[in-house]
Design a protein around this nucleic acid. Structure first.
Lengths: 220, 220
DNA sequence: GAAATGGTTAAGAAATCGTAAAGATCGATT
DNA sequence: AATCGATCTTTACGATTTCTTAACCATTTC
C-alpha cells in the first residue's frame, strides 16, 4: 500500500484530503508545519508528499529543496503561486490549485506514483531468462554473462524498461543517439540483428519481435 | 507533433516565437487578432495557446474565457499584468512577462503539455468487442488477437478515438499520411475493405459503416 | 438511366526486414 | 606515429510483407 504525507496547517483541508486518500486506498501521514514535516520524514518514508505552500514556521518553498527523492505535489491557492516554474525547478513534481477537483488530484497522484515506481526501482531489469544490470552494464542469461556493445546494451535496456510496449524505430533512435549520435534506421537493424544473434546463442530463443513498419518489442 | 497557436498582433514578436517553437520541434499556427484566433480555432485544434493580452478587436481578457479546454499561457508586458490572479482565475494555465527568457518559456510550455497529455487518454481504446492497445499495437477481439497492418491499425485507431463521429475520407488520408504518404482514396477503400474483412472474420459483425459521399464511422 | 461513389479482388509495385560482408571510425597500445 | 582490435556504419541482396493500382460490379444519387 502506498503512503502519502499531507503537509497542511489547515485542519479542515487536511481532514478532507485524508478522508479522500484513505477512501482511495492510500495510507496517510499528517504534518501541520514545515518543521514537523521534516521531523516526520526521519521516522517514516512516504511514497509521495502533498504540500501546502502557506505553512507556519518553514514555508513550503523553504521545505521543497529538502524533500529530494520523494515526489512532491504542491497544493495551493491560486494567488500563492507567483511562479509555478520556480516551484517545478525547485523540485516539485506537479502542482494543483485550490479549489481543486478531487478526481484531478487523484489522477495527478497516480501519475506521480507511477512515474516514481518506474524510475526509482532497482537497476536490475528482468525478462524471461535475461537479467540486465544497468549499473554494471552486464547481461546475465542463465548464469552466463553475455558481452554487449554499448549500443546493443542501450537497445536491450530500452526494450526491457518497456517490456510490453512496441518501441518505434524513431523513438529507439532518439534514445540511443545519446550514445551513438549517427545511428540510422539502417544501422539500427544491424544492431538488432547482432543483439538477436547473441541472445539466440545464449538462450535459444528469439526475444525480439519486430512490428512491421513500426518498430520492435520483446516477445510474449 | 504538438501544435501551438500564437495569438499576437506584433509581427516581430510573433515571428520570433514562431522561429523559436519551430526550431524546438513544434508546429505553429498564427493569429493576429482575437477574432481571427477564434476563427482559426474552429478549423484547427492546437495543443496549447500562447496569448498576448494587448490585441486589436477582442482583447486577451475577453478571449480567455472562450478558450476552455486548451491550456493557455499568457505572454505580456509586465505593466499589462496588474492582476495575475485574475488571469489565472479566468482560465489561464500560466503566464510569462516580456522580455522573457526563451528557456523559461519553453519550460513552461513543456510543463503545460505534459500536464495536458498525462491527464488525457489512456492507451487502451474499446468499442464493442474490440480492444485496441495503442502501446502494444495489438487488437483483441474477444480474447483473440487480430493482426493488423500499420495502415489498418491507424484507420481503426482514428475511428475508435472518435467513436461517434463520421470521419471524412480527406481527414483519414491526412492522419494516415504520416505513415503512408501516398495513400489515395482508391487505396483507402482497399484498406477499409481489408479491415472490414478481418473484423468480420473475428467477430461476425461489420464494425465500419460508410457515410455516402463523406467518409466512415463506427457502427451503432 | 446516367453518373458518381462504394466494395471486392488480383496482381504488380514498393517498402521493410534480416543478414552478411566490407569499409570507416575510434581508442588503446606499442 | 603506426598498428591493432573493437565497434559502428554502409552497402547490397534475397525474402517477406504491405501498399497501390486497376478493373469490374454493385449501389446510391440525381
Amino acid at each position: 500500500m502506498k503512503s502519502i504525507m499531507i503537509i497542511d496547517d489547515d485542519i479542515n483541508i487536511g481532514n478532507m484530503l485524508e478522508e479522500l486518500l484513505t477512501k482511495e486506498g492510500y495510507h496517510t501521514i499528517r504534518a501541520y508545519s514545515g518543521t514537523e514535516a521534516l521531523l516526520c520524514l526521519s521516522l517514516s518514508n512516504p511514497d509521495l508528499i502533498l504540500l501546502d505552500l502557506m505553512l507556519p514556521g518553514l514555508n513550503g518553498e523553504e521545505i521543497l529543496p529538502k524533500l529530494k527523492g520523494i515526489p512532491v505535489i504542491v497544493v495551493s491557492a491560486k494567488a500563492d503561486i507567483d511562479d509555478k516554474v520556480h516551484l517545478l525547478l525547485d523540485g516539485a513534481a506537479d502542482y494543483i490549485t485550490k479549489p481543486f477537483n478531487t478526481k484531478e488530484l487523484l489522477a495527478r497522484i497516480a501519475v506521480q506514483l507511477r512515474n516514481a515506481s518506474s524510475l526509482a526501482s532497482s537497476p536490475i531489469l528482468r525478462f524471461g531468462n535475461l537479467t540486465l544490470n544497468t549499473d554494471t552494464h552486464s547481461l546475465l542469461v542463465e548464469r552466463q554473462t553475455v558481452k554487449l556493445t554499448r549500443t546493443e546494451f542501450a537497445i536491450l535496456k530500452l526494450l526491457m524498461q518497456n517490456p510490453t510496449q512496441v518501441i518505434a524505430k524513431s523513438v529507439m533512435l532518439n534514445r540511443i543517439s545519446e550514445d551513438t549520435p549517427d545511428c540510422t534506421e539502417n544501422s539500427l537493424k544491424v544492431h538488432i540483428s547482432h543483439l538477436r544473434k547473441k541472445l539466440q546463442d545464449a538462450d535459444g530463443k528469439d526475444y525480439i519481435a519486430s512490428v512491421w513498419g513500426i518498430g520492435f518489442k520483446l516477445n510474449e
